[in-house]
Amino acid sequence: MKALPPCLRSASSRHGLVQNHALQRRQQLPIATAVLCSTHSKSGRRSFSVLNRPPPNYPGHVPLTGLERAALAVGSGIVSFLDPYRGDMIAALGEATASPYFIERLRRAMLASPTGRRILRDRPRITSSSLNLPRLRSLPARTVGGTYVAWLDREGVSPDTRSSVRFIDDEECAYVMQRYRESHDFYHALTGLPIVREGEVALKAFEFANTLLPMTGLSMLAVATLRPAERRRFFAVYAPWAVRNGLRGDEVINVYWEEEMETDVDALRRRLGIERPPDLREIRKREREERRRVKEGAAAQAVAS
C-alpha cells in the first residue's frame, strides 16, 4: 500500500514545506451545504442508472450503482490480493465495501468524541506540507512527531502517497475515509509495525478490530500469502495483540495527530490503551541472523566432516 509512486501528489510537494493556511484550507474537502437538506430520500438516490448518473456530491465523487459497487469491490479485491502493492486498488476496495453501515459507524465513533467532532469540523488533511517535516525531525525521538518522522525515514515513505476518496456517496463519510487513510501511517508509527507484508497484515488486523472497516478485515486474507514461519508468528503473537488492543483501545480515528506531535508516544499509547507489540523488524533481523548462523554452522560442519 505504501509503494504507490508519489506522482499523484506532486502539487503539494512543489509548494514546498511552507505552513500555508490558505493552501491547507484549499486541501480540505469543501462542504456541500444546500444539496444535503434537499428532499432526496435514500431510495430516491439508489434509483439512478448508468445512463442517468446524478451529479457528484463533492469534487472527485463518482456516484456508483449497487452493481457497479459490487463489481468494483470484487475486482479491486482480486487485484489487491494478487498484488498487495497496488495501493489504489486497496483504496478502491476500502471505499466499495465501506458503505452501507461501516463508514457510518466510524463517523458515529468520531461524532461521539469531542476530539473526533473537532476533526470533522476542521477537516485537516495530512500531507508533507501540512505536517512540516523538518520541524518534526527536530522533535525528540520519544514524541509522536519524532517517532513518526523516524518511521517515515526508516521505511522511506512519504505522506503524500494517498489517493482521494471517490466512491463514497456522503461527503462527510468521504472525509472520514480520507482521514482514516491519511492516519494509517501514524498507526504504523504508533505501533511500530513495518510496511513489510507481515507488518501490514498485523496492522490491518489491529485496524479491523478498531475501526471495523471491511477492507481491513479482507486484507487479513493476505495472511495466506505469508511464509509458514511468519504465519505461525502472526497467529501466535500479532493476531492476539491486534484483537486485544484494537477492541480494548480507544478509537484511533479520534486522535488529532496534528496536535499530538509533541506528545510522548508512550503517554499517547497509555491514553489510548494500546500496548506496543514486539518489534517485528528486530525479530525478523534476529531470525535472519539465526538462520545465517545455522546455515554457516551447517556449512562449517560439512567442511569439517
Binding site: I31, L36, C37, T39, H40, S41
Partner: peptide, 12 residues
Amino acid sequence: AWRLQHTQFNRR
C-alpha cells in the same frame, strides 16, 4: 448549525 449541514432529512 454545523450538524444540519451534514444531516439529511425531509423537511416536510
